[in-house]
Design a binder for these strands. Sequence first.
DNA 1: CTGAAAGCGCTTACAG
DNA 2: CTGAAAGCGCTTACAG
Lengths: 338, 338
Amino acid sequence: MAGRRPTLDDVARAAGVHKATASRALNPETRNQVKSETAHRITVAARRLGYVPNTLARGLRTSRSTAVGVLVPDLTNPLFPPIVRGIQDRLDAHGYTALLVNTDNDEARERAQFAELASRRVDGFIVATARRQHPLLAEAAERGTALVTVNRTVELPGTPAVVGDDADGVAQAVAHLRLLGHTRIAHLAGPQSVSTGAVRLRAFLQQAGPAGGAVVECAGYTEQAGRAATRRLLDQYPGTTAVLAGNDLIALGALAELAARGRRCPRDLSVVGFNDMPFADRFQPPLTTVRVPHHEMGVQAAQLLVDLLTGPQTIARTVVLPTQLVVRDSTAAPPPPP
Amino acid sequence: MAGRRPTLDDVARAAGVHKATASRALNPETRNQVKSETAHRITVAARRLGYVPNTLARGLRTSRSTAVGVLVPDLTNPLFPPIVRGIQDRLDAHGYTALLVNTDNDEARERAQFAELASRRVDGFIVATARRQHPLLAEAAERGTALVTVNRTVELPGTPAVVGDDADGVAQAVAHLRLLGHTRIAHLAGPQSVSTGAVRLRAFLQQAGPAGGAVVECAGYTEQAGRAATRRLLDQYPGTTAVLAGNDLIALGALAELAARGRRCPRDLSVVGFNDMPFADRFQPPLTTVRVPHHEMGVQAAQLLVDLLTGPQTIARTVVLPTQLVVRDSTAAPPPPP
DNA sequence: CTGAAAGCGCTTACAG
DNA sequence: CTGAAAGCGCTTACAG
């Protein structure tokens, strides 16, 4: 658009030096290789001309794009903006840029987006779409692609991940419900194809003990799936007095189904969510939920990837971030038995 | 990361042709320039080798990055994910990629991010951070940078924009309140440095008529600013029975201040928001608000920019999208006078 | 400390 | 229809 941007050669000419010298002067890492007086002259010329280095040309030469691909299912799912923001913040601090794509939980779309990112030669990937079994990620890891998963894990040994301590979160939630007097606690489990769904269910079963609690699996982490699952739950296990939802959206579905049946939360049924998504405190009723540090998750994932990209031989770590139950108004003592 | 990706030359060699021919065969636009048998051989070789074209190299040569810079204040503001998603969806359809950055309403940060995008040679910008007076955008427009604003406008003649019909939205909201019987309607105006703040205020004053309604300006489109403004409003204009908030976050602040004073919505005060942000229907109380088609806004903004970038001499249009009042539970008839 | 040269991976007039 | 060559804007060994 702009009428030909000045190049390094333009700057060099203006400063009366060779473009190689200009390149060295303008790069902080090599600036000490040039006489400070010359460097200064070049800097001034660059500023005067409004020179903006061409990152693409630089990347072509160095085979590093300083760009990172970020895969999320859908940015409009309120879970992801804080994660993405955390990623961007930390990436920025290291001079990287995020290339963000949505997969809509569609494998074909995910492959297309992945190829698009690859064609832009991203240096690595931060993946929030991981399923436990994930051929695309397996292939990428096989090729030596730098890869970090966030919020979820993939069952690929050696793939670094940043996740919340979901098991502890479940334990806190169940303990809270027990303390209120609940004995018939059910779990609206998230999809078992995804690590969070599996981990939270396993933790629930462990907390529920040998007697066990009712479990209904949701088709997805959506309000609609949560509502459908709640329908089944209330029909099959009418004695249930408390529910631990796989996430906040599922909890929202439970609240909707409750309302549709003319039952009240928490009077008739206590509901605990998972994630503490934005504005969960403003819902009707304000939602008791397990807070997961999403922004920090993104920050750590970005840091992990940067370490991988720049470090000599960084060990692949998995970072587990603490979770915390936030008690609000959707939980209360169980109703007296009829 | 991956052990040297195959280049066009590798593909050409594998197919026994010159790389120029391979280039033509692999590009849909030039494929007809090569014998279809040869083209097929090249395509097969490319697939076999797992060839992924290098968009950076292509961009260097063609001086088109097929990337677009997108500026938002803060992705975690629930207003923006739908807009960004709309942008991405339409950009994708045209082979463009969005480079998304957050400015945090900080001018220095915005300049830094803008320069970063410029260094990545984005073909144009979609700007959701526009202020009415915006030196950075003025400079960019001056240089001939392709630019579209979304949701807000900048006072730069000839700059295309996609906005909601805010004036009509305000009219609908005020009419609704009037019909309920309200006569003392106040406006918690958004910041006047931003077009939405100014347009909605102007429309409100027009609807309020010569008698006028109370107006308090918020320092920002935030819950906190909304709460502070509500405090001033209730102190100075205790007779107010209904409030039109500059946006939903401001409305949320109003609800918070109300709750803190032990007053109820809608019984003591009706509140109308603006935007219909995600989950506004799940708030306590479900919020009456003016729906703005954010996803569509993003779609249209992306289309406008693509037109600008690819069209011969496209006229700069401004697109105004319809808004619609959504009546929920935060509005009711005014309380009987004491 | 600075310059000359090569090359990153493409595309595209220009020949043939 | 295909090839040879130049060049997009950088960086970086290699000389001097």
